[in-house]
Design a binder for these strands. Structure first.
Lengths: 240, 240
DNA sequence: ATATGTCTTTGACTTATGTCAAGAACGTAA
DNA sequence: TTACGTTCTTGACATAAGTCAAAGACATAT
């Protein structure tokens, strides 16, 4: 039923299935693309809506088309640690779906989010016929592993100012930013991503402003002394 | 009994390439196994020897056959954080070799280690012909991702006693252990694995002994109050 | 056995960061 | 606008954990 709606929503003007633009489906032949159109289920989530919870059985995975999703763990006292933020064209819950394990974390939509759901059984059938999909997914997993490797390093080796500095410098290397970066998440969320609490983050931002390293105005932050930020990442105290 | 097993494994090797017992090569046809015998390079490392360093180019990956290898990061002041310990039948450096990235961490042999080296170019050739290898590797990567997810949670959500308790309980669930566990790494290494320093670990072990939660004698630790350990994992202070 | 080097433990001290509580700033809806 | 709820900031405080330094235990080799 949902499948029919999907099909109808696709205009004949599109001679190439748009799903073939999704990284893990790159290089697939066109017939496979048409087949995917019939398998993938469109789903929408509103801001703050839960997509899955930790421990629940994985029935498939999501390809995020629009919006952002936070994947996070909760401690026994309700504090959350964001593991990562999944954005457009990225996969959500793929590892669990592949391995057949329950989801290891919670996922909430951070804003209005559109996604395609890929049922596990259909996915397992697809990879039998199209091994290249597995190759693409492995590249995807590899990147995630490298990201996590780095995150473990950040969380365990550096103090909060170092983690913040690393994050700001990372943002400044993203396309469109250089001297000024726009933090696209709230202070509290950023604190969680850095493995700390809003109070601590707030204090550190103030101290960095006082030292003339940053200029903070809401979610817009100007990096005045990038060199000092690099030093902080490398463990320098920089008089904070 | 041991002799019989030994004999059988020797006999079997005359008919089936032993490499086909390695998880990622499971289900490969015998001809591929013989081909692998000609590709894999036997390498040995002595205790403490470096296998690769962070940032160096990845020319292939290792399959550990005997011994253990620690994969770790170094902070600017030389402090190390162990990411994981790779043991028998496990892969070392596979992500980098697959993605063609430099190694993201250092790897040192913790003891005399025997490994098979799989050159990157040969591996890329193999997966073209044998997609099932990629499936097996993806299962491997998935497990690693889940492990890292858990590790990030441990490092960021829990205090050191909680991480220690989680590790001890994890060991006690391993085959062969229940009330008493044998820590197979030195105090300093364990500290690094838990994201702390030997001094702190030492103090916490003492406090737990004083409270009658543990009984420590060298690398042998008796878990006297498992329930309390669980409470500590869940954030209870337990009067430490 | 003795000596040498490494690993581990302990104590005194410092510091980064979390907790608690209150006020300020901000956004949203009436 | 005002009022309300949320988020952010700030201060005083508590504490977990790191640093430094020294002593003790342990293992290895001579």
């Amino acid at each position: 039923m949902v499948l029919i709606i999907l099909k109808m929503s696709k205009k004949a003007s599109e001679h190439i299935s748009p799903v073939l633009n999704i990284p893990i489906f790159r290089n697939l032949p066109e017939p496979a693309g048409r087949m995917l159109d019939g398998i993938l289920v469109r789903r929408e989530f509103s801001r703050g809506e839960n997509i899955f919870i930790e421990g629940s059985e994985s029935t498939g995975f999501y390809i995020i088309m629009k919006g952002r999703v936070k994947v996070f763990k909760l401690s026994s006292d309700g504090k959350e640690q964001i593991l990562h933020i999944v954005g457009s064209k990225e996969l959500l819950g793929a590892v669990s779906a592949f391995a057949g394990n329950p989801y290891p974390a919670h996922a909430d939509a951070m804003e209005k989010t559109k996604a395609l759901f890929f049922p596990r059984k259909d996915f397992l059938a697809l990879i039998k016929n199209e091994p290249s999909v597995v190759m693409n997914m492995m590249a995807n997993l590899s990147m995630r592993l490298q990201y996590f490797t780095r995150m473990i390093e950040d969380l365990s080796l550096k103090e909060v100012p170092g983690r913040l500095a690393a994050y700001l410098l990372y943002l400044s290397r993203q396309p469109g930013y250089s001297e000024t970066v726009e933090i696209d998440i709230s202070r509290g969320q950023l604190a969680s991503l850095l493995g700390t609490i809003p109070e601590t983050l707030s204090r550190i931002l103030r101290r960095m402003s006082e030292k003339g390293i940053l200029e903070v105005s809401g979610r817009r932050i100007k990096l005045l002394k990038k060199k000092t930020l690099h030093d902080i990442v490398n463990g320098e105290k920089a008089g904070l």
